[in-house]
């Protein structure tokens, strides 16, 4: 049982890491979209963020998974059951990250922009060299919260039968000669340990960024 759960955990981890790899940068793009002076883009982004934050992730996963076939009559090639989870998680988490980034960026003193301005930094340089590094440091605690939530949210992939650890645990628990409740206990230990590792890594990142202030 532990072996099977460990094997299914690979998918849990994949959902986790692919979501972060996609959503962390996409969140920045969403932030820029929201700040854009190009009105349609700004509106689109705001609607997108409010939908992502205003509806359950489980529902979003199901919509992303079923909509292509049922609404648009497309068959998405490849392992869409898994990809749909990744797509849904990325666009959901990007919305949350965008709001966190916004908070981080808006908390930076205007004097930083003015100093960069006077020193001749361009808009892009100012953002990349001056604002972004300070923002990253400021958002680490909030991002840590989201990342820990993400570990637990991976179990929502079971809504469309994607076999990650939680789906597997449910299957094992009802299989003949199964250890029953013990399965969930073991799965719980997996999640807990994984989150402990995540918390440790985030703490290290926070520490690495605390060389100033």
């Amino acid at each position: 049982m532990v072996g099977e759960l460990a094997y299914a955990f690979i998918n849990t981890f994949l959902i986790f890491i692919l979501t972060l790899l996609g959503a962390l940068p996409l969140g920045l793009a969403v932030y820029f979209g929201k700040k854009s002076r190009f009105r349609p883009l700004k509106w689109f982004t705001e609607v997108y963020i409010s939908i992502m934050r205003g509806t359950p992730l489980m529902l979003q996963v199901m919509v992303i998974y079923f909509a292509p076939a049922l609404v648009f009559n497309f068959t998405v090639p490849g392992n869409w059951r898994f990809s749909a989870v990744i797509v849904a998680f990325i666009i959901n988490y990007a919305a949350y990250f965008a709001e966190i980034y916004r908070g981080g960026i808006e908390s930076i003193d205007n004097g930083q922009y003015e100093a960069a301005h006077v020193l001749g930094y361009g808009k892009a340089q100012t953002f990349v060299k001056i604002i972004l590094p300070q923002m990253v440091k400021r958002v680490v605690p909030a991002v840590t919260n989201e990342v820990i939530t993400l570990v637990k949210d991976t179990s929502l992939a079971s809504a469309i039968g994607t076999v990650e650890m939680f789906t597997k645990a449910k299957q094992i628990a009802v299989s003949p000669r199964s250890p029953g409740m013990l399965t969930f206990l073991v799965a719980g230990v997996f999640y807990f340990v994984f989150n402990a590792v995540v918390a440790f890594v985030m703490k290290r990142i926070e520490k690495a960024l605390s060389y100033y202030d």
Binding site: A29, S36, P68, A69, F74, T75, A84, I91
Partner: peptide
């Protein structure tokens, strides 16, 4: 320049959505 970036960003986002909704296949086999 700013407009170009905005439009580019818009395109990226639309593409992301399209990726969720569309596909290369197009037709049900």
């Amino acid at each position: 320049m700013k407009k170009t970036i905005s439009i580019l960003l818009a395109a990226v986002m639309v593409l992301t959505c399209a990726l969720a909704l569309a596909s290369c296949g197009g037709k049900k086999p």
